[in-house]
Design a protein around this nucleic acid. Sequence first.
DNA 1: GCCGAACTGTTATGAGATAACATCACAGAG
DNA 2: CTCTGTGATGTTATCTCATAACAGTTCGGC
Lengths: 164, 164
Amino acid sequence: MGDACHHHHDDGPPSAEAVSVSLAAADARLTAEGERMTPARLRVLELLLAAGEPVKAYDLIARFGEDGQPAKPPTVYRALEFLERKGLAHRIASISAYVACTEGGPAHAAAFLICDCCGATAEVTAPLAGALDRAAHDAGYDIVRTTVEAHGRCPACRDAAEAA
Amino acid sequence: MGDACHHHHDDGPPSAEAVSVSLAAADARLTAEGERMTPARLRVLELLLAAGEPVKAYDLIARFGEDGQPAKPPTVYRALEFLERKGLAHRIASISAYVACTEGGPAHAAAFLICDCCGATAEVTAPLAGALDRAAHDAGYDIVRTTVEAHGRCPACRDAAEAA
DNA sequence: GCCGAACTGTTATGAGATAACATCACAGAG
DNA sequence: CTCTGTGATGTTATCTCATAACAGTTCGGC
């Protein structure tokens, strides 16, 4: 991911230390909650954190083994399901990819800004709770979970396009 | 689709006449715009309109031939792409399904309320333009297209669940 | 130490979508 | 009228995404 266009500008994935810190924090939090942070779950979260951008499930599968051995698909999909349930990762349906969650708290609503050019994403805290919930209520729906994904261009790609 | 739970309550798909009317209107509008409303495109739109709810691509493929003959996948995917481009249909990414558009106008933003129980959906007119656009602007993103999908329970399924 | 629940390993397959290339239909230029 | 290029379609094959099903294992609680 991250290079659909031809100018790759990277915010830089998080440093190894930053990944370790986030990973340890997640481990500590969930373990305290009585959840089992197994090696597979930690590994998938590590890969997501290290990427710093959305990753395809099969890329996680390919990178899973430290020695280059791929995982079996269910291993990774199960870990992703767990992480998503615990609010540590999100699935981005419009591009079939997964990303580590950058916001705290379990199972929160999330919205994403996705650059169609370079693949960068920004997670923003649900700026639509009000309007959407009102529309849902008017229609008689009870809403449990929302998917909000906005596609366009990130600042760097926009600038690059204007320069051309 | 439409029966994930055990109580199927149908708003009723549109009548055959209603489908014909919508189909003819779409045909007239796009033909006037110089687009080619070919048989395959009309057929896919007809199937979407007749369903009155989201339909999986492979269900469209299976139902495509009037005589029961399925279509080849690219036939249907190409028609869907065209219809989506023209604002006559939407893809609902979170459930990988397609639905005829119930709002006028080409290429507008749309938001969906989706019942996880019975599959019913309601299209609501973008109630988040303001908040989301502001968030995007703050982050420096230019937004081209948004996916807004809220999952929960429709009024009928909510009532049925409460009764239990 | 035993038991049940949750997690993992493994095989296989189902479901969703597109690449690549040949062919065809049609509108506009000459 | 015929040439010609663009857009649409037909066809084959393949790719990506995701899960079903079942056997085996780990771990905490009793």
